[in-house]
Design a protein around this nucleic acid. Structure first.
Lengths: 153, 153
DNA sequence: TATTGTTATACTCTATAACTATA
DNA sequence: TATAGTTATAGAGTATAACAATA
């Protein structure tokens, strides 16, 4: 046991520590734990959960529009939507004004699961970020939303 | 063309918009574009780049310690380190005091590529975040580092 | 011609279990 | 017995190209 100095201490990141993209990716990984605890037992994952939320909030939304809102490519939406339908969380009906398109709706069960999960995830996030004030969480959210608005950069 | 209302406007996110984990994941995706432009031509990707940075900053660091610093599992480090070695960016030497372990070093080329990429990525990030003041970027970095410190939550 | 959804496919990152050789 | 590195494998998310049906 001769490695006392570097035993538990994390090594230096170097200039990596100044890169916002690195920290965003890392933090995203950290926050996947409270998410997982929040949706435990539902079979939901991060992206399907996000899709369900958008569908519940925008009844009748087209598959492509839901994907655009979340930055998900059309090709990847297909399996994700099928999965939500098979789980009984989403309903798909032919769009009335465009026979190419589908209109999506959250089922009663989907809406209920979504509500429960959203509350639970929020609790878990608040627990992980217990040292953050509400104002700090608000500041963070605002900054992140501004980055998303820069999507085309 | 009857979908004038929802033509380019993003649909509402619902309560998803209040979840920090969602925004972190999304922002991470947004910032992968400036990263990709910054490392273009080097063959580096996000995780190998981060590993190279830690190795360059901590000459002789063990494979496991580098992984711990970045939250990368031992099992996943193997191929990543091999890749960096094959690219000529990293050197691996047997550790002197532990014949199980390897000591890692950035090569001259690795250090140069790292320096160039870091500068270039920083430029690209600054461009994407042009509407952010230096103070705002600093605030964001501080908040993100605090989340990382909560890794076990 | 352009758009909606689709299929096929590949890549990146992450996760777990079981193994080896050293400690 | 514990640790450093390894192998194998699977899951989750993202990316591109090409196609059918409809606009």
């Amino acid at each position: 046991m001769t490695h006392a100095l570097t035993d538990t201490a994390a090594a230096s990141l170097g200039d990596l520590d100044t890169l916002i993209g690195y920290h965003l990716r890392r933090c995203s990984g950290v926050m996947s734990a409270p998410f997982a605890r929040g949706v435990a037992g539902t079979g939901l994952r991060q992206v399907p959960f996000a899709i369900l939320s958008v569908i519940a909030e925008n009844p009748g939304i087209r598959q492509g529009a839901a994907g655009e809102t979340l930055g998900i490519q059309r090709a990847n939406m297909v399996a994700l939507i099928n999965e939500l339908i098979e789980a009984g969380y989403v309903d798909r009906r032919p769009a009335e004004d465009d026979r190419r398109a589908f209109a999506l709706y959250a089922t009663t069960e989907g809406a209920e699961v979504l509500r429960r999960c959203t509350r639970s995830i929020t609790e878990q996030e608040t627990r992980v970020l217990a040292e953050f004030t509400a104002a700090e969480r608000g500041t963070l959210l605002k900054l992140l939303r501004r980055i998303e608005a820069r999507e085309r950069g």
